[in-house]
């Protein structure tokens, strides 16, 4: 009977090592299925986070053969059968145990983003938007917060100190969604420039490559944000144009931004 060897990281903040588990190969399985069989058999204390097993909840993010992927969406037959399958926790975040990491950094960053601030409702008490105005933001709403884009981003993956200054790809698409929202009234560009650290991104597109929702994080989120920041902070011609045209500036987001003391 065919077998598969899973080389799984076992450990906690005190240290760890890879442990091999050789299991019978079952046709049609995904990596998470085999992890569950390991839990049900040789290693009942193996810790891993999962929920939906359908690629919707974003819980089972891990690094499979060194690449961030959802365990529930990675078919075993898509991996090289001749060598053990490496399963490790996400590298960017502190490990809690085995494959479970502490992703609360992301929630702290989320707190620093000023919420959607719509203009006052119309006379009938409602807000109205044209479909054409909201199509762009709908792509970003597909995010399942698996945080694999945050994990693969070398700005914080390889440089822990940058977590203080850099929000990460997941939050740039959130910021782009808000910035391009037809009803939002805040101007977050200075916040994106100064506090969210968009300048750290060197657009090497790894976030886009690993996104399980196929969101064009770089092309549709980060680069448009970079260009908006250039409009407000680097381009003297654009600044002069705004002055000549006397465009009314939206309220700067600094007034409402919640600065995180911890980060």
């Amino acid at each position: 009977m065919a077998e598969v060897t899973m080389r799984v990281w076992r450990g906690d903040p005190g240290g760890g090592a890879f442990t091999d588990y050789t299991m019978p190969a079952v046709e049609g399985e995904v990596v998470l299925d085999v992890i569950h069989r390991i839990q049900a058999g040789p290693a009942p204390d193996l810790a891993c986070r999962w929920n939906c097993k359908a690629g919707r909840c974003g819980s089972c993010s891990a690094e499979i053969n060194g690449i961030p992927r959802l365990m529930c969406m990675t078919r075993m037959d898509s991996l090289p059968p001749e060598e053990p399958v490496l399963v490790a926790p996400m590298r960017t975040f502190p490990v809690i145990r085995d494959l479970v990491t502490d992703v609360s950094f992301n929630f702290e960053v989320a707190k620093r983003i000023p919420a959607f601030t719509p203009e006052p409702a119309g006379p009938d008490g409602t807000h109205r938007m044209m479909q054409v105005d909201i199509e762009r933001g709908q792509e970003f709403r597909k995010c399942i917060e698996c945080f694999m884009c945050q994990d693969v981003c070398h700005v914080i993956r390889d440089h822990e100190e940058n977590k203080r200054a850099f929000a990460g790809p997941r939050f740039f698409i959130r910021l782009m969604e808000l910035e391009a929202h037809p009803l939002d009234t805040l101007d977050r560009r200075q916040l994106i420039h100064r506090d969210m650290g968009i300048g750290y991104c060197n657009i090497t597109k790894c976030c886009t490559e690993v996104c399980p929702e196929l969101i064009h994080i770089t092309d549709n989120g980060i680069i448009p944000l970079k260009e908006r920041v250039v409009d407000s902070s680097y381009d003297p011609v654009a600044r002069l144009g705004r002055r000549i045209l006397r465009r009314r500036a939206p309220a700067p987001a600094d007034d409402v931004a919640v600065k995180s003391a911890g980060n």
């Binding site: 990281w9 450990g11 060194g66 926790p89 960017t92 975040f93 502190p94 490990v95 990491t101 911890g262």
Partner: peptide, 21 residues
């Protein structure tokens, strides 16, 4: 809310990459 502490011990071995492709 649980306070976030940066600089925790990361999982996985301290190697440049685990990729074999």
């Amino acid at each position: 809310p649980v306070p976030v502490s940066l600089g925790g011990v990361r999982g996985g071995p301290d190697v440049r990459t685990l990729r074999r492709d």
